[in-house]
């Protein structure tokens, strides 16, 4: 059945195919428009450069009035990403608005990678290193980048 959420997600998909922002890709999983797989490529000239990070986006029938649940499948080391891969990002929580589509969500997460918000740490170790020991932080990020090539 075609519900408002499903119709909207078809349009999100069409936009992502026709006009894909640099460094992200995403598509519905098999024939399930409510569950998406996505990949974010680590931005060039940053410690994240070369990483391919996998995510899932789970939508409900409340979309686009409610945000999807977005989680990294790849292991991450980032001040705003929890151990289970869930992401602490305002637009995925209380600052959500239907003006965001899948492309906008993924673009926002991509910019969060290099621009963490140390004030709301989900990973306190990553937050501490980010502000106190950037060298060690960058080394840990490079490790994660390398792991992203081998993990499935």
């Amino acid at each position: 059945m075609s519900t408002p959420a499903r119709k909207r997600l078809m349009r999100d998909f069409k936009r992502l195919q026709q006009d894909p922002p640099a460094g992200i890709s995403g598509a519905p999983y098999d024939n399930n428009i409510m569950l998406w797989n996505a990949v974010i490529f680590g931005p060039d000239d940053t410690p994240w450069d070369g990483g391919t990070f996998k995510l899932t986006l789970q939508f409900t029938e409340d979309y686009p009035n409610k945000p999807p649940t977005v989680r990294f499948i790849s292991r991450m080391f980032h001040p705003n990403i929890y151990a289970d891969g869930s992401i602490c990002l305002d637009i995925l929580q209380n600052q959500w608005s239907p003006i965001y589509d899948v492309a906008a969500i993924l673009t926002s997460i991509q910019s969060l990678l290099c621009d963490p918000n140390p004030n709301s740490p989900a990973n306190s170790e990553a937050a501490r290193l980010f502000s106190e020991n950037k060298r060690e932080y960058n080394r840990k990020v490079r490790e994660i980048v390398e792991q992203s090539w081998t993990a499935d």
Partner: peptide, 10 residues
């Protein structure tokens, strides 16, 4: 510059 499909349903 709002994409039409993000607001047309509303």
């Amino acid at each position: 510059g709002y994409p039409e499909f993000t607001f047309e349903d509303f």
